[in-house]
Structure formats: C-alpha cells, structure tokens
C-alpha cells in the first residue's frame, strides 16, 4: 500500500487539473472494474456491477489545494491566488511545482507578519526577467505545493494526503471486493477543494441510493488543538456532521453497525469547519442518504499532512463492509 500512497501523493493535481492523478488511478484499477469513464468535469468513475439493483456511490477527491498564477512582472516574479483553502502561515519559504516540472520558491514582501496576505507573496522561479519566466510559466497556470513523501514507519507524511489517501482507500477496497452485491460506483472526484463541484455532477449522473464520501478529517490530538475527539491512530472516523452535511442517521447507524460487527476500530467525528463530497451528493435530485468515512489527518491543508496506516486500513475495511452489506434500509 505504501507504494500506491507514494505514487498518488506525489502526483500533480490541483483542482481542475487532475488528469495526472486520474491517469495513475486508471492504471491501478482497470483490471478490477467493469467500466471506467471520465466525465466533462474530470471525474473518473469506476463501476463494479452487482445484481441487487441498488446503486452505491463512493467518492474520494483527486484534486489538491494549490496556486494559480495571476501575474508575471518585468523581473520575472510571479503573483498568485489560492486554489482552495491555503494556510498562509505555511507558505513563506515553501516551494511550488508546475505541471511541466518548473519549481518555484514562495517569498514575501517586507512588512509585519500579522498583516501578511496572499497579495504580499510572490513566487520566484529563478527567472532573469519576464521573458525568461514566460519560457516556463504563463498567467493562468496552476501549481501545487512541492514537498517530499516521508515514511515515518506506521505513519506517513506528505503533501496532498487530502484526499489522495481517500483515493487509496477506494482503490484498495475495490481490489478486495470480488462479488459485488450492488452496482458500486467508485468516483474519483474533481474540484472538491473549490466547492464539491465534481461530486455534484457525477452524483447527478449516477443518481445513487446511498452516498459515501471518503475524505480526510483534522484531528484534535496535537498540543492546544481546536477541540475535537478525533485522534490519529484511533481508527476510521464516522462523520456525524460538518458544515456541508449532516450524515443521514441511517448511514451513521449503518457504518457503526458494520464497524462493530467486523471489529473495525472507529471513532465519531463532529467537524465544525469544512465540508466533503457528501455535502453535494446528499442534495442530488430528490435527495440521497449520505455519510462519510474519514481518515484522520494531522496538519490538514499544509504541505505536511500525516496519516496512520492502521486508520487507513480500518477505512478500507469499512468501505468493503458497506459494499458487501445487503443494505436493507436503502
């Protein structure tokens, strides 16, 4: 599993430009699925056909937060805006990478750190002047945080765990399910970080009976963290609510029952800030009972997001359990 994680977190895939990620996933899953399609917004949809007539949609997003270049000045410095929720404190001195491999450093203008905003930051790609910069980068190009993958043993730290680790969970689960009961739609969704956009359209096209997002959730187990019971290593987090969705009571009950029955370690998650694909799925058409299985991640939306492999395994087991359940209530 570590190799797949490494391969996926290192890939380039800011919102709207997820092609490299979906290409990798396509290679990884193509032998295990009945159908594989990409839609207009860049969602990759892998289908395993069942016999019950019920449709279950799992969704993990392929995009990561990043940068979009808004201006290149005469000296060749780049100005940028955020793609998704960047944490400004983690930017200065960090590096970014463009689709063509160009690397840049984020620098800041003089001034008080308290008044720092994106307008005062710039990217230096080592260009001599504007023309030199234009050889490599144009206005409107997207970039991602450039940070290496580190294996810490049972824990791994990297950029873009949010939500490539969710993609890994779906890929691993998909390999394990041999005889699907229901039609299973594994959606590797686009543009989650800018407003759940890929999940919205893919869910409309699929029109599922049950929707499960697989995404990361911040933990409350670090020094003086915002108050939360979620802790790294305490198992799969079953979402109760966040700002985008209140998990359907039936879905919360289903996930709890399956976790208890299969001995999967779990914890409940109440998130007061942030949303997931489930927020878009549950409002599709006449409504879809939806919930979310969350992978606890420390340092979310920084270039150093940390996961625990046991949590990841627990999430894989829980996804498999849902896929193989009779789902009598849905």
């Amino acid at each position: 599993m570590k190799e797949i994680i490494k391969q996926l977190v290192e890939a380039y895939g800011p919102s709207g430009y997820e092609g490299q990620v979906t290409d990798i996933i396509t290679e990884l899953v193509k032998d295990y699925v009945d159908e594989l399609t990409t839609d207009v917004l860049g969602n990759l949809i892998a289908v395993k056909k069942g016999t019950s007539g019920k449709k279950v949609m799992f969704s993990a997003h392929t995009d990561e937060i990043g940068f979009v270049i808004t201006h290149i000045d005469d000296k060749g410095f780049l100005r940028f805006s955020n793609v998704g929720g960047l944490n400004i404190l983690t930017l200065v001195g960090g590096r970014v990478r463009f689709a063509n491999g160009t690397i840049g450093v984020i620098g800041k203008e003089k001034g008080d750190l308290k008044e720092l905003d994106l307008d005062k930051l710039f990217i230096d790609i080592g260009a001599k002047n504007r023309e030199d910069a234009l050889e490599k980068v144009k206005v409107g190009d997207f970039a991602i945080a450039h940070r290496e993958y580190n294996d810490l043993g049972n824990r791994i730290v990297s950029k873009a765990m949010d939500d490539r680790i969710g993609c890994v969970v779906l890929i691993e689960a998909l390999k394990k399910i041999s005889k699907p009961v229901h039609d299973l739609y594994f959606v590797f969704s686009s543009q989650e970080e800018v407003g759940l956009r890929g999940a919205r359209t893919s869910s409309y096209a699929i029109d599922p009976d049950l929707g499960i997002a697989v995404d990361v959730t911040p933990t409350g187990d670090t020094p003086e963290a915002p108050r939360s019971e979620v802790a790294l290593g305490n198992g799969a987090a079953i979402k109760v609510m966040d700002t985008s969705v209140i998990a359907h009571p039936k879905v919360k009950a289903l996930l709890t029952r399956l976790a208890e029955a299969k001995g999967i370690k779990y914890q409940y998650e109440v998130l007061t800030r942030g949303g997931t694909d489930a927020g878009a799925i549950h409002l599709t058409k006449e409504g879809v009972p939806s919930g979310c299985i969350s992978i606890p991640v420390r340092h979310v939306h920084t270039p150093s997001e940390m996961i625990d492999l046991d949590d990841v395994q627990a999430c894989v087991d829980l996804v498999v359990a849902v896929a193989e359940d009779a789902l009598a209530d849905f």
Partner: peptide, 23 residues
C-alpha cells in the same frame, strides 16, 4: 488578456455544475 486575480463569480459556475456537467 488573462484576467488576473480570482475574485468574484459568474454564471459560468452554475452552468458548469448543471446536471452531469458542462464545459
């Protein structure tokens, strides 16, 4: 010209999200 900055929104946002998605 390419519009600098990413402020504001347009009808394109809603049209893109229509049904199964629109370029």
């Amino acid at each position: 010209q390419i519009r600098r900055g990413t402020q504001g929104g347009t009808d394109a946002g809603k049209i893109q999200g229509t049904k199964g998605g629109v370029p």
